[in-house]
């Protein structure tokens, strides 16, 4: 089965090269980087590291980049698609663990949850993430322990069903919503979160969280 790793990246020249290398080291060489209109050398660094690079001419946000990445992976004939953050907060050694439920046909969508075993996550992040889990459940009726995780895996069948409309960070909750709506078989796998100064700076603040919440509620009202 052909596994494609999709890495959305916006101004990640400092970390994307290292992330790609770490993924390759685990034997995954089909890597698609979506450069979401970066102002830095993200594209060049990613290409040099050996990834297939797609570049958005303008910045569209995480949701936009993930959607493009998943479409690209499907075009390349992927059987399994893994989404992976470019900021270095995931451990590439855990990819095998995350795709396992799909290989053994137990699930079609897997979310790597940082909160089953939240070692090293700052308390304020923990609170923010749990808040999002509750909100995601209240709005979309699917319970996850980590609705905002960027480490996911989809079977080809599930990826084709996903309809991603969000442009920005609210995409994480939207994917959970789609899993529920399309009745995609779903599993969670515990993962580690590597919190470095860099990944903390790049991640979401709780204030940004409030903005995401506003978007999600409005989105819900509009349907």
């Amino acid at each position: 089965m052909r596994t494609y790793i999709v890495i959305p990246a916006y101004n990640e020249e400092k970390s994307v090269g290292r992330v790609i290398k770490s993924v390759q080291k685990q034997g995954f060489n089909d890597i698609i980087v979506i450069d979401d209109g970066s102002n830095d050398n993200t594209s060049r660094v990613a290409k040099k590291a050996g990834a297939i690079v797609y570049r958005h001419p303008v910045n569209r946000g995480l949701g936009g980049a993930l959607g493009t990445g998943i479409s690209a992976a499907l075009m390349h004939g992927a059987d399994i698609i893994v989404t992976f953050d470019a900021d270095g907060q995931h451990d590439a050694r855990e990819i095998r663990k995350v795709v396992q439920p799909i290989i053994s046909r137990k699930a079609d969508a897997v979310v790597g949850s940082r909160l089953i075993n939240p070692k090293g996550m700052p308390i304020i992040r923990k609170i923010g993430n749990w808040g999002f889990n509750i909100i995601t459940y209240a709005l979309f009726g699917v319970w996850t322990t980590d609705s905002q995780s960027g480490f996911r895996a989809f079977s080809r069948k599930a990826a084709m069903k996903l309809e991603i409309k969000s442009n920005r960070m609210e995409v994480s909750s939207e994917i959970i919503k789609e899993i529920g709506k399309k009745k995609i078989r779903f599993a969670e796998v515990p993962i580690k979160a590597i919190y470095t100064d860099y990944s903390l700076k790049r991640g979401q603040s709780n204030i940004n969280g409030v903005r995401i919440l506003g978007k999600l509620v409005l989105r819900r009202m509009m349907r």
């Binding site: 797609y54 958005h56 303008v58 569209r60 949701g63 936009g64 959607g67 493009t68 479409s71 442009n167």
Partner: peptide, 11 residues
């Protein structure tokens, strides 16, 4: 719509 266009152009 802009995202759809961007995706289309990129791919």
């Amino acid at each position: 719509e802009i995202t759809t266009l961007t995706r289309h152009i990129t791919l």
